[in-house]
Every structure is written in C-alpha cells, then in structure tokens.
C-alpha cells in the first residue's frame, strides 16, 4: 500500500490478508509487516451482511487483544484514503439502490449503479458504481460525502481470473478529490482454496498471528 500526499510525498505499508467466507458473512485477518513499529500487529474482522461488524486488534508488544468499536468504519484505514468501510465486503444488504444506467468508462461498456449506505455511521451519502458488461466487475466507484459532494474516486485495474472463477484486481487506486491525497493498493500472490477454516480466524489465531 502506498500513501501519496498532496505534495506527492510517499509512504509505504505492507500487509498480508487472509479471508474466509462463511454463512453469516466474511472473516478476515490482516497482519502488518511494515512500518516496522507495527510489525506483527494483527486485525481480525468479522463482517456481517446485517448488523454491526466486529473487530479486534492484537498488539504484540503487550500481547493484548483489544476489541474496537464497530462505528469507526468511516475512519481511515492505516492513514490511507481507504476507509474501513471501503475495504470490507460490500454485502448487498448494506445498501439501498437507485436507478441503473449505461455509460462508457475508458471505452468499456458499463452499468452505472447508484447506492446509498443504510448505516447512518457511514461516511457517505451515496456511491456510484461502474460495473463492466463483460464480467460484471466493479471498475470504478465514486464516493459522495455526507453533504452530497464528490469525495473520492476508486478505480481497479489489472483484473485476472484465478482458479477459473475468481476475478481479482492487481491494483486499486483511491483518489481523494477534496484534499488531493491518494492511496495505491497493489496486491500480489493471490491464493485460493488454501484450506483455511474458522480456527484460522479465532481469538487464539489472533494471539499467534505473525
């Protein structure tokens, strides 16, 4: 992950993510490698289609697990332009949908869909999604702040198909049009069907994360 401020100064962060889809939502475990002062810190999240998400942070220096308040979702993720709510699974139940229209994005035929978060703690009034016709992949999202002004533009590139079913982007880019800051998320080494189970996303798994 690269953070770029409005003067073009960059700072980088590295993290590893494991995900597990299960009937009541999705579990994810992130382990931070850099900056080095947070190396070994881990964030365990359970995201649910309905109701508050759950998050626990493991601080290795004092071996302490802290449960975090669920409503920090509009806050920045690791000082990036991504908010927590931008990086978790966008279950369809979390939004109310407005009309769909057709438009082109960089020559790509897209469905353009508007949705509003149901959660009043969301940082957004609405989101406009650009979904391509061919593979139904989210290529761009425009985020509008609570006042209805355009706040951020997300774009995803370098989609590849894994295991003949899962399309994943190689890079995600979030540009804040109000403060000029940007964040690039570059993903590599996607692996699927690794035999992960609930035990890899439990409280004890968080204690041994590294």
């Amino acid at each position: 992950m690269t953070l770029i401020d409005s003067q073009g100064q960059q700072a980088s962060r590295q993290l590893r993510v494991q995900n597990l889809e299960y009937p009541e939502g999705e579990k994810s475990l992130m382990v931070f490698d850099t900056p080095r002062d947070v190396r070994g810190s881990a964030l365990l999240s359970y995201t649910h289609p309905v109701g508050d998400d759950e998050q626990w942070l493991f601080l290795p220096a004092i071996k302490r697990v802290k449960q975090i308040g669920a409503r920090n979702k509009s806050g920045p993720f690791m000082a990036s332009e991504f908010a927590f709510e931008d990086i978790v699974t966008p279950f369809w139940q979390k939004f109310t949908y407005a009309g769909i229209s057709q438009n082109e994005l960089n020559g790509l035929a897209c469905h353009v869909l508007e949705r509003s978060p149901n959660d009043k703690n969301s940082g957004y009034s609405k989101q406009r999604l650009w979904i391509d016709h061919e593979h139904l992949l989210v290529r761009q999202i425009e985020y509008f702040d609570r006042r209805g002004e355009l706040l951020k533009v997300y774009t995803a590139d370098g989609f590849t198909q894994h295991n003949q079913q899962h399309w994943r982007p190689a890079s995600m880019h979030m540009r804040n049009v109000q403060n000029g800051r940007q964040t690039k998320l570059e993903w590599r080494d996607y692996r699927f069907a690794q035999g992960l189970s609930d035990r890899d996303f439990s409280q004890n798994a968080l204690l041994r994360a590294r």
Binding site: D52, Q67, G69, A70, R71, N72, N121
Partner: peptide, 9 residues
C-alpha cells in the same frame, strides 16, 4: 468484561 456498543466501550 468489555461491552462494545457503537462508539462506547
């Protein structure tokens, strides 16, 4: 015990 309710812990 910790009871997490929104912004309140």
């Amino acid at each position: 015990a910790q009871y997490t309710a929104g912004d309140w812990l």
